[in-house]
């Protein structure tokens, strides 16, 4: 059954799209973070790593 008229792209659609993007981005970051942490750790001073100073950027 083909729809003859395209459904309009309303406000509630926009909000669901934004929520979707936000949620998937968060999930994506959670998945990527452990790997990122190890990459950062491999170019930082290990003592900084174990002191927690490298959770975002290398030292």
């Amino acid at each position: 059954m083909k729809a003859k008229t395209k459904a309009s792209y309303g406000l509630s659609d926009k909000t669901s799209d934004i929520i979707l993007v936000v949620v998937t981005t968060i999930i994506m970051l959670i998945i990527a973070y452990p790997l990122y942490y190890v990459v950062v750790a491999s170019v930082s001073d290990p003592y900084d790593v174990y002191a927690g100073k490298t959770f975002l950027l290398p030292s």
């Binding site: 979707l20 994506m28 990527a32």
Partner: peptide, 19 residues
Amino acid sequence: NQMRFKRYKRVVQTVMYAP
């Protein structure tokens, strides 16, 4: 499946498969 932005969808999937 509901994502409308094809490019970003690809990116998300690529990251998801990595582990």
